[in-house]
């Protein structure tokens, strides 16, 4: 009985919470179908005329490329960042969590320290370095570092480490008894149990490179290679008029792939650890 009541209360609470949390997003959406002179003028919440054409105007705002190009570009870029991040950080995370090696503490401090210097002062030196490598105006500067654990690597590797430390050691030990080496333990024991964290790393890599702006701006010159994040800024001058409706409309569209990935992928998140035996 109390359980039933508890469940209903929880449900009502969640709906209220969701509404409050989503209010700004709803505001953004309503802005995307308003005329420019209604968005900031205050007063009405709903648009007086629903201007769905803002979506079309935004999509075709530029003469040579549509937002379709920007979406495809972003998918390409993000795919490699996600792949690279997952591979490189899973490996390193396993090492930090399960293996002993010299300078472990020092390296772990280095790992965290790479997160502590503000991006802003690294921007220019890194640009000079990458331009010496000839990586300017390509996705190389944005994707290759991910394969070497340098795209938020400190965050991901630490996340992996912390998660793997939570996997019961008996599983490893059982595998050792079965004659497995370090690599096979990693492949057959650790990886299958890491689905939630691998998904998390993939999700964050997806989301952060999807939203990344300054790095993409620095390394991509050619508008034909622009990402959605750069595409959105094409609406914004320092002084000239801004088509807020189109900008908001495209902002809403750019949210959809990420929320879709999350919605579909959340099953992996709650995939608990297999507590018995060895898979495969």
């Amino acid at each position: 009985m109390t359980n039933q009541r508890h469940r209903i209360l929880k449900f009502i609470f969640l709906i209220a919470l969701t509404l409050i949390m989503l209010y700004p997003v709803i505001w953004l959406f309503l802005g995307s179908v308003k005329a420019n002179n209604e968005i900031f003028a205050g007063g009405r919440i709903l648009p007086s005329v629903w201007k769905w054409e803002n979506y079309k105007a935004g999509w075709y705002a530029l003469p040579r490329f549509t937002f379709g190009t920007f979406f495809m570009n972003t998918f390409k870029l993000v795919f490699f960042v996600v792949l690279g991040s997952i591979v490189s950080t899973t490996l390193a995370g396993y090492a930090f969590a399960r293996l002993d090696f010299p300078f472990k503490n020092l390296l772990f401090t280095v790992l965290l320290a790479t997160l502590m210097l503000p991006e802003q002062v690294l921007l220019v030196p890194r640009y000079v370095l990458f331009s010496k490598l000839g990586w300017v105006n390509s996705y190389k500067a944005l994707t290759i570092p991910a394969f070497f654990g340098q795209f938020s690597g400190g965050f991901f590797i630490y996340l992996m480490t912390q998660f793997i430390r939570g996997i019961p050691r008996e599983l490893d030990e059982a595998a050792v008894v079965d004659g497995c080496g370090t690599f096979r333990i990693f492949w057959h024991v650790i990886l299958p149990n890491c689905k939630p964290v691998v998904f998390s790393v993939g999700l964050f890599a997806f989301m952060w490179s999807w939203n990344d702006f300054l790095n993409q701006l620095l390394y991509i010159n050619d508008v034909g290679r622009f990402t959605v994040s750069l595409g959105l800024r094409l609406f914004l001058d320092s002084a000239a008029a801004v088509s807020w409706g189109s900008l908001f409309a495209m902002s809403i569209l750019t949210l959809i792939p990420v929320i879709f990935v999350f919605y579909v992928g959340q099953e992996f998140l709650v995939d608990g650890i297999a507590t018995t035996g060895l898979k495969g």
């Binding site: 490189s88 950080t89 490996l91 396993y94 090492a95 293996l99 070497f148 654990g149 340098q150 590797i157």
Partner: peptide, 8 residues
């Protein structure tokens, strides 16, 4: 295991 990250 650490090689990619260390090289990076």
């Amino acid at each position: 295991f650490l090689a990619p990250w260390l090289i990076g």
